[in-house]
């Protein structure tokens, strides 16, 4: 029912939008519709967030109330070599992970999209949807064994085919531990990104594609010349969601390396967890959280700016 949306109907000119201005309906209508959301967000997101930000300016030894110490936590934070190191780590992790997820989701979606058989398209889509139910914990357990030492799957494979003379401790060396975390869950086709891209591709009008094919455009060229520009919006969305998730990542670090070796896999969110819950420095942890939040926000704004700078095909 909505699949017919073509680029032309979605052009962003105010006159063609269907919203009614507030003049037509009483102002309380939208407010009424928003009240449940705002109430909940206020109670369980804004107030706790403000509380956390407030506590980032305190020495907070729970259950005692925080003791105001001004910017001390922030000063200590930017003098903290582990925190600084964790910022560099998460930047690498985020970029690597996002690139992997984006590329693999796109490859997977293109493979499915290019099938001629509708039936098979649906089957493959289903095949790559179901693994979404596997809890991340199980994935981590499996990948721990992939990267393990002498008997690890990766080592046995690489020494077996003669690519390596000796097994390598992937999670136990500063140069390989972070890349190893990035590749967890490879090929990373399954997931929300794959589904969004596939849906966006299926949204493209098939006439354009057929025309391109008739014009002698190779399939591969079509992917780059037509598909990729046309799904910029969904890609930007996945980019933001994935960068955002990467920025807050701590489960893989917690389970696979606990931040080692020598803090090369320490992430700010994991450091927040350790400082707050393991060391009991909740004020300091809140400061880490506040910085993390600001950085994610800045990054998302930057991506949105980039996205809309040369946008001529905006759908939303």
């Amino acid at each position: 029912m909505t699949q017919q949306t073509t680029p032309s109907t979605g052009a962003k000119s105010e006159s063609s939008r269907w919203q009614l201005s507030s003049g037509f309906v009483p102002i309380y209508i939208p407010i009424l519709f928003l009240i449940p959301a705002l109430l909940l967000l206020l109670s369980f997101r804004y107030i706790p967030a403000v509380s956390a930000i407030f506590h980032s300016f305190t020495y907070w030894n729970i259950p005692e109330p925080g003791e105001f110490i001004g910017l001390e936590n922030y000063q200590a934070l930017f003098d903290d070599p582990i925190f600084i190191k964790s910022l560099g780590n998460i930047l690498k992790y985020m970029i690597g992970r996002t690139a992997l997820v984006l590329v693999m989701a796109f490859v997977g979606a293109e493979l499915v999209y290019n099938l001629t058989s509708d039936r098979w398209r649906n089957i493959w889509r289903m095949v790559f949807t179901i693994p979404m139910v596997i809890p991340f914990t199980v994935n981590l357990l499996v990948w721990q064994q992939v990267y393990a030492g002498r008997q690890g799957m990766l080592n046995e494979f690489l020494t077996g085919i003669g690519a390596m003379a000796r097994p390598y401790p992937w999670l136990g060396r500063p140069d390989s531990a972070l890349p190893a975390l990035i590749f967890i869950g490879f090929p990373a086709v399954t997931g929300f990104g794959f589904l969004i891209i596939l849906a966006a591709l299926q949204n493209l009008s098939s006439e354009v594609n057929d025309a391109a094919l008739i014009d002698g455009c190779s399939r591969l060229r079509r992917v780059f010349a037509i598909d990729l520009p046309a799904i910029r919006g969904p890609l930007a969305l996945i980019l933001i969601l994935s960068l955002n998730q990467g920025m807050q990542e701590f489960a893989p670090m917690l389970v696979m390396t606990q931040g080692g070796p020598i803090n090369t896999t320490m992430s700010p969110a994991y450091y927040l967890y350790i400082q707050g819950f393991t060391y009991g420095k909740h004020g300091y942890a809140s400061a880490i959280g506040a910085v993390l939040m600001l950085m994610t926000l800045a990054l998302s704004i930057f991506i949105l700016r980039m996205r809309y700078r040369r946008a001529y095909d905006v759908e939303v």
Partner: peptide, 9 residues
């Protein structure tokens, strides 16, 4: 609000 690290709250 998506940007808030869950563990912080």
């Amino acid at each position: 609000l998506i940007m808030i690290p869950g563990i912080l709250l």
